[in-house]
Amino acid sequence: MTSTQEEGVPAAPPWGAARLHIVTGKGGTGKTTVASALAIGLAAHHHRVLLTEVEGRQGISQTFDVPPLGTEETPVTRVAGGGEIVGLSVEPKAALLEYLQLFYKLGRAGRLLEKFGAIDFATTIAPGVRDVLLIGKIYEANRRRQDGRHKGDSPPAYDSIVLDAPPTGRIGRFLSVNSEVADLARMGPIHSQAESITRLLQSGQTVVHIVTLLEEMPVQETLESIEELGAKGFHPGAIVVNMVREPLFDDAALDQAREGRLHKPSISAQLAEAGVKVTPALVEGLLDEARDHALRVDLEREQLALLESTGLPIVTLPALPGGVDAVAVRELAEVLVAEGMVR
């Protein structure tokens, strides 16, 4: 992020008032990893964070190496300073039963509906109902106070909520489904709740972060998602460029590699000094790899320029050679804090 404060101190993020952080990205970009790292960073600053997922992939449990999450909010890990992350895997059937009990007091009747298959029908067949229920559970957790109520002076149950959301190809429809439901249901609790959820998602309390790689398809989906989110009244946050690798050469060497002008005798001499048997085929192969690397760097810089043209804050996370585990996610969280994504 660009600093507007004293040198070395990142500027406060423009979403400083947000409590609900939605993380999306094209599949394979590492959005679950980023959501988990963001939750750790927020927990270090804001103490109690709910980290949720809605796709049933158990990505959170795999990331933190804990047992699979159920439909109950479950402590996942603690961070330095006493912060806590609570995990939740939102499941449509459980969310609908909770909804029926909350708004219609259908405890036993709701279970009877489940027995006759009505719950499965509603969550798998009825258009849009699944997404309404998934978002509705997040909305409820956001409203809940420490005393268990949804109104009053008690502090919020969670200081921040991080949602590992559906991918960019589906995020616009996922977030706007409640406005569509409000249009269909003209009155009653379904209408009022759908309107309330839409207000939350379009308010300053909610921000949508997009995870991408410096590759053409993820960047194109990112740009399309930013346009779609803005058109639908949602607030894009940071663009998180994940798995960034530094160039192996400086710009002068990249130019030489791109044009096939690297000095073969020097390469051969360095290989020989390292104890490698030098052959013409080996040298030519290395030159081809160097050229491919230079072209790759060119492509990544082009894609980064496209992302910068959006004007949104850009946060970069390094590629981790050892892969991603619970320790690595904490390292990435430190990077997010250092780059000013969390304050």
Results as ranks from 00 to 15, higher is better:
187 M>D: 14
190 I>F: 06
191 H>A: 03
191 H>F: 02
193 Q>N: 06
194 A>C: 06
195 E>I: 09
195 E>S: 06
196 S>W: 04
197 I>N: 00
199 R>I: 01
199 R>E: 07
201 L>K: 00
202 Q>F: 05
204 G>R: 14
205 Q>D: 13
208 V>L: 01
208 V>T: 04
210 I>H: 02
214 L>V: 05
216 E>K: 15
219 V>Q: 05
221 E>F: 00
221 E>Q: 09
223 L>A: 04
225 S>Q: 01
225 S>W: 00
228 E>H: 08
228 E>Y: 04
229 L>M: 02
229 L>E: 02
229 L>Q: 02
232 K>S: 11
232 K>P: 06
233 G>C: 03
235 H>L: 13
236 P>I: 06
237 G>E: 07
237 G>I: 03
238 A>R: 08
238 A>W: 00
239 I>G: 02
242 N>T: 07
242 N>H: 04
246 E>I: 14
247 P>M: 11
247 P>K: 06
248 L>W: 11
250 D>C: 12
252 A>R: 15
253 A>I: 13
254 L>F: 09
255 D>V: 13
256 Q>N: 13
256 Q>M: 15
258 R>T: 10
258 R>W: 10
259 E>S: 15
259 E>F: 13
261 R>W: 09
262 L>F: 08
263 H>G: 03
263 H>V: 12
264 K>R: 15
271 L>V: 07
273 E>I: 08
274 A>W: 14
276 V>L: 08
278 V>N: 05
281 A>F: 10
282 L>Y: 03
284 E>R: 13
285 G>C: 07
285 G>Q: 12
290 A>Y: 12
290 A>K: 04
291 R>Y: 09
292 D>T: 15
296 R>D: 13
297 V>E: 03
299 L>Q: 12
299 L>R: 09
300 E>S: 13
301 R>M: 05
305 A>M: 04
305 A>Y: 08
306 L>Y: 09
310 T>C: 04
313 P>C: 01
314 I>W: 00
314 I>P: 02
317 L>S: 05
317 L>R: 03
